[in-house]
Lab assay of single mutants.
Amino acid sequence: QSFTCPYCGKMGYTETSLQEHVTSEHAETSTEVICPICAALPGGDPNHVTDDFAAHLTLEHR
């Protein structure tokens, strides 16, 4: 399964590499985005909106 960065649209990330990408490239970004990992999880929330995606990844998807 691969994920797309909700900020810049780059594709092909794993859960881990998406977290690394967001932390390095978009750490200061506070735009509201939908978490693509939550959306892909069975029973996950397809509409989970977060305005601190880097922190959300760290808390929810480590």
Rank of each mutant, 00 (worst) to 15 (best):
V22T: 04
P36K: 03
G43L: 04
F3K: 01
H48P: 13
E15F: 06
V22A: 09
L41G: 14
P42G: 12
S17Q: 13
G44W: 04
S2A: 13
H21N: 08
Q19H: 05
P6T: 01
H48A: 15
E32M: 09
T31K: 15
R62K: 12
S17Y: 09
M11Q: 11
E32C: 08
A39C: 09
P42N: 12
L59E: 14
F53S: 04
S17N: 06
P6M: 02
H21K: 04
A55W: 03
T50W: 11
E25C: 07
M11H: 15
H48R: 15
T31L: 13
L18V: 02
R62Y: 09
P42M: 05
H56Q: 01
P46W: 06
D52Y: 02
M11I: 13
A55G: 12
A39Q: 10
A27R: 14
K10Y: 01
S17I: 06
G12T: 03
L18R: 04
K10D: 15
G9L: 13
E60V: 13
H61C: 01
S17F: 11
A27T: 11
C38M: 02
E15K: 02
S30H: 09
L41E: 15
G43E: 14
A27K: 14
D51P: 15
A54N: 13
P42K: 14
T58E: 08
L18H: 07
V22H: 02
A39Y: 06
A55Y: 05
E15R: 04
M11P: 15
S17P: 10
I34D: 02
P6G: 04
T23V: 13
T4F: 05
D51Y: 09
E15L: 08
T14C: 08
P46A: 06
T23H: 12
T16L: 11
T14R: 08
P6L: 01
E15G: 06
C38N: 09
L41N: 15
S2D: 12
G44T: 15
G43S: 10
H26T: 11
A39V: 03
L41K: 15
H21M: 02
T31N: 15
L18C: 00
S17K: 14
C5Q: 00
I34M: 05
I34H: 05
Y7T: 10
A40I: 09
L18N: 11
A54D: 01
N47S: 13
G9I: 04
T50I: 12
V22C: 15
E32F: 03
I34L: 07
G9C: 05
T14V: 12
C35W: 02
G44D: 09
H26C: 05
E25N: 02
H21R: 04
H26G: 04
T50F: 11
Y13V: 06
L18E: 06
A39I: 08
E20C: 05
H56T: 01
E60G: 11
M11C: 13
T58I: 10
V22D: 12
L59W: 06
N47E: 14
C35T: 06
V33I: 07
R62L: 14
T29M: 12
I34F: 01
L57T: 03
H26I: 03
R62S: 15
R62D: 15
L18Q: 06
N47K: 15
T31D: 05
S2H: 14
C35R: 02
I37S: 05
C35Q: 04
I37R: 04
T16D: 09
A39S: 12
F53H: 08
T29F: 07
E25T: 11
G44H: 15
T50G: 05
C5W: 00
A27F: 11
C8W: 00
S30G: 11
Y7C: 12
T16Y: 12
A27Y: 09
C8E: 01
T31Y: 10
E32K: 15
C35V: 01
I37M: 04
E32S: 14
D45K: 14
H56C: 04
C8F: 00
I37V: 13
G44S: 14
T50H: 06
H48E: 14
L59V: 10
T16P: 15
C38W: 02
A54Q: 09
Y13A: 06
T16I: 09
Y13H: 09
Y13R: 03
S24N: 13
A55L: 10
T14K: 12
A39N: 10
I34R: 06
T50P: 07
T16K: 09
S2W: 03
K10L: 12
T31Q: 13
T4D: 09
V22N: 07
F3W: 01
E60N: 07
C5A: 00
P42L: 04
Y7Q: 13
T14G: 09
K10S: 11
E32V: 14
C38I: 01
G43K: 10
T31R: 09
T16G: 10
K10N: 11
H56W: 00
L18P: 04
E60C: 08
T14M: 06
C5L: 00
E60K: 12
H26V: 05
E60D: 13
E60W: 07
E25M: 07
G9D: 14
